[in-house]
């Protein structure tokens, strides 16, 4: 039972990281109607920034995360401006998708060039050891707890931002109807930029948590979590923020438990099979809405 709990809590923690990444995917999809496959690599870049800041410059972990979030925000805005914006409207959605894959490889190779392929040993941004329960039988690591709390804060902050602020409401409007949003006086391009900025900033936070839990940083670190977060976003219903959260958590828990009880090698296969089954039963994902139009 304790063993189960350990894996369950670890699953929630891993799922929380997927959820934070999935939020970036789902927000960008909701507003720009594009799948930003480079999103996972933004996590990797963010992690390298934190690594450089903490290890090379010897800065405080929290300050390092702030620097990485700022760096990734700029990266997000710049990639959107340079690579995706020129394709908006005119080109097919396939062109944007391929560009995103191109940006993904560009970032990976850039990291390869700057940081080499040698894995960097990431030191955790969380110095707290965690808690031990049931007379030391059940240990929960500090980073696990911090990850779960952080993701909850991120979700609440994001929901409040979207529901309560003018910019947040503008995001909802743009995601629904760009033309009508422009007629309201909303600058659609700025709103899309803002979405990329928020998504990329969140990616930096996800990078800090991911590399604190799995301290092996390479230029390919972001790729697999990126894909899984995409699966999480689709599972929850792409475009839906609570959906991304639930999808991420489910994915993390399933992955962790299947590693323990079924097979370590098969855990990824199981995760992707579940995606296929869910999509067969509910093509819009768990919380995805059917598009309904009234005439």
């Amino acid at each position: 039972m304790l063993n189960f709990l350990t894996y369950f809590v670890n699953g929630i923690s891993l799922g929380s990281i997927y959820a934070i990444i999935a939020l970036g995917y789902t927000m960008v999809y909701g507003i720009a109607k594009m799948l930003n496959f480079a999103h996972g690599d933004v996590i990797m870049i963010g992690s390298y920034i934190i690594y450089t800041s903490m290890v090379t410059w010897g800065l405080d972990p929290l300050l390092s995360i702030v620097i990485a979030a700022a760096g990734c925000t700029v990266l997000g805005i710049v990639t959107e401006k340079v690579a995706y914006k020129p394709l908006r409207g005119a080109a097919s959605s396939l062109a944007v998708l391929i560009t995103a894959i191109g940006v993904s490889y560009l970032l990976q190779n850039l990291a390869l060039l700057i940081f080499t392929a040698n894995p960097k040993s990431f030191s955790s941004v969380v110095s707290w050891d965690g808690i031990s329960l049931a007379g030391g039988e059940l240990k929960i690591q500090g980073v696990t707890i911090i990850t779960i709390i952080t993701s909850l804060i991120v979700l609440l902050a994001l929901q409040t931002f979207i529901k309560k602020t003018k910019q947040g409401q503008a995001m909802v409007a743009v995601s629904e109807d760009k033309g009508a949003a422009a007629l309201m006086g909303i600058n659609v391009n700025k709103t899309i930029s803002l979405t990329f900025a928020i998504g990329s900033g969140l990616a930096a936070i996800a990078g800090a948590l991911l590399c604190s839990a799995y301290p092996n940083l390479t230029p390919y670190t972001g790729a697999m979590p990126g894909i899984k977060a995409f699966v999480a976003a689709v599972l929850g219903g792409i475009g839906s923020i609570p959906g991304a959260m639930i999808g991420g958590l489910l994915l993390g828990i399933i992955e962790s438990l299947s590693k323990r009880y079924i097979s370590t090698q098969l855990s990824d296969a199981i995760v992707f099979s579940i995606l296929i089954i869910v999509l067969l039963v509910r093509p819009t994902g768990l919380l995805g809405k059917k598009v309904q139009e009234k005439v």
Binding site: E176, D177, A180, M184, G185
Partner: peptide
């Protein structure tokens, strides 16, 4: 905007 309430839609009209 179907996913916004009536009031939120009206407030969108006064966005600027």
């Amino acid at each position: 905007f179907a996913n916004l309430s009536v009031l939120q839609n009206l407030r969108m009209g006064a966005y600027t």
